[in-house]
Design a binder for these strands. Structure first.
Lengths: 354, 354
DNA sequence: CACGATTGCTCAATCGATTGAGCAGTCAAA
DNA sequence: TTTGACTGCTCAATCGATTGAGCAATCGTG
């Protein structure tokens, strides 16, 4: 038995196809309620489900949206971004086409063509780290960039507000009384945009607090637990008066390495060393001992935002600048006052947020 | 400027729509090569991309497949499964519809209807943990179950071979010389299928090696690092002669907890205690110190398998039993011989694999 | 009672492709 | 020269819905 069509419902209800279509689409202004009931009953009894392909051809709206992303496989963040996109799509009666390109330009071009061929109503182009990307050729106007900034303008985009996130992280430490705060940065040829922005946030808060930044406290390592451990080792080898009492890490993985280095030296967290991470990577931050205070990346919200803009239910900001999504502060147990040996600075006036 | 249609190409090439369609679909048996060239040039010059919606309506094949999954957001494994599905879809010129249901039955039913309405050529129903699920009503015949077993029969399914995985894990320890091997199990009302199967594998290898299982070495805790830590604490509090020299953990997170407990007691891994995990969760297993030996879950391969069956390019096994996907052994550095204080049993004969 | 407005429904074109049937024209064989 | 086969291409129906135009019956009003 093949699927029921509109004509099957029409035959069962004893009316025309047009009438069935009008009733089932709610355009019932001029249809008697008896007829409406008969049509609805007939539709239910034959188990009618509209054929979206035929409808899409006729209306030129397919109620689908395309999501192109590089490497969904290898990042723990993809899930939340997809979930945000997927939830918005569902809320608006849309279905999501997902294409994973692994960053391959040919695959990307093919995906753009295929999705255009499917007549998607909207398109989202997602990266898995905040960075600048070249828009693939043929990308339809109105494509929304998710967690990345297009190098050529004209596309709406949403990225995490890493600068404010960096400020919040460091402010947590300054407000706990720390003055010697290190930044464990990532060391790559092509550093993520986020690294620079978080560093700017770091410097801004130090400036606000009247703390002279110490270049020795800005260390770079590879973005991993091993890198964090090496960075921490270098910092903890500094002479006592130059040693940091707190560390802000580019991400939670590096923070995990800082934990290891600190524990190996018998240091207590946060008693001897306070640590703030970034990303709120559950399996890392939540299971460290003590649990890591960190800044969360708003992947779910960014996924939602991008999809809402792609669907046209939300207006992108004026001026073509990327929308900055706030990064929530996740207070756990890795921040405390500096150790007594490095006393709290006297007479600090309360910090103000510009 | 709207998209080019077949009729635009036909006009540009000075031939009929039929001819263009035949040429572009490679049915050129009776088309002169001059005409073919003209058509292809015309198609390129107007930038023609076939309208998949119209084609789908006519041919009744949409070249799409639907993937329904519960909670893609909250598991680190979803990515690899999706990547496997996505890669197969792309290799066969298909596009993937992704729906995340969060386990909600209403959303699930809605998704099934919507995907049927989109006339998908195949359907995959995925869970994020190996378990028994009730097939939602209306699921098309031939839907493939991914990482779960349908409670009612008739559907092809693929799940990890957890029993063999458990065997492999424990054999690693037995072959290193261990005789007192604990199993840190998960303690839940509705334990995952995997837990039972891995335990069976554990018991089988012990039996093969002539080791009497000690109930005190089978401990249950919640599936987290904290649970693993508590379990390890209990095991390490056992009198010396009953204490395990090796631990097989239900998963890597629990293994991470065992590390913490061991380190707190000043135990060396693997010198004093050998540990094998399960899942190969990169951010956990790979970044422990020392890196954790574990059994990987073949999510990518399962995603591929399911999608190949859904597409009809691979035959499911006879007899309707789920396909068991092998779980690779990931040898890292957390397994060694038992400490000298608990000497290797004398005269062990070589193990044989049945 | 006639006429226009309103109500309730149907006709038929349309979206953009695919494809079996069929139409000229050419060529070889009879 | 006729016939049949073959070549090269086009016609037109079709997939399953949506929708503006329009028809017939009823109603209200002057």
């Amino acid at each position: 038995m093949s699927r029921a069509r509109l004509s099957d419902v029409a035959a069962a209800a004893g009316v025309s196809i047009s009438t069935v279509s009008l009733v089932l689409n709610g355009r019932v202004a001029r249809i008697s309620s008896q007829t409406q009931d008969r049509v609805r009953e007939a539709a239910a009894s034959v188990g009618y489900t509209p054929n979206s392909v035929a409808r899409g051809l006729r209306t030129q709206r397919t109620r689908t949206i395309g999501l192109i992303s590089d490497r969904i496989a290898t990042t723990p963040f993809a899930g939340r971004m997809l979930a945000g996109a997927q939830d918005v799509a569902r809320e608006h009666g849309h279905l999501l086409f997902l294409v994973n390109t692994d960053g391959d330009a040919d695959v990307e071009a093919e995906a753009v063509r295929a999705l255009a061929g499917q007549q998607v109503d909207g398109m989202v182009y997602a990266a898995m780290w905040h960075r600048v990307v070249d828009a693939p050729a043929g990308l339809p106007a109105g494509t929304v960039f998710l967690d990345c900034r297009p190098s050529s303008g004209g596309f709406p985009a949403v990225v995490p507000d890493d600068r404010t996130g960096g400020r919040d992280a460091v402010r947590l430490l300054v407000e706990a009384g720390h003055r010697r705060i290190a930044y464990v940065d990532v060391d790559e040829d092509d550093p993520p945009v986020a690294a620079g922005l978080r560093h700017e946030g770091y410097l801004e808060v130090l400036a606000d607090a009247g703390i002279e930044p110490d270049p020795a406290l800005h260390v770079r390592q590879e973005s991993s637990a091993a890198g964090g451990r090496a960075a921490a080792a270098a910092l903890l080898d500094l002479p006592a008066d130059r040693r940091p009492t707190a560390v802000f890490c580019f991400n939670d993985r590096m923070a995990a390495g800082v934990y290891v280095a600190a524990h190996r030296r018998g240091l207590d967290i946060p008693g001897d060393l306070s640590i703030v991470g970034y990303d709120d990577q559950q399996l890392v931050a939540g299971e460290l001992d003590p649990p890591l205070t960190t800044i969360a990346l708003p992947h779910y919200e960014m996924g939602r935002w991008a999809t809402e803009v792609a669907l046209g239910v939300r207006e992108p900001p004026e001026g073509g600048r990327p929308h900055l999504m706030p990064c929530p502060i996740i207070r756990r147990d890795s921040v405390g006052p500096p150790p007594a040996a490095a006393p709290t600075p006297a007479g600090g006036e309360p910090l103000t947020t510009p």
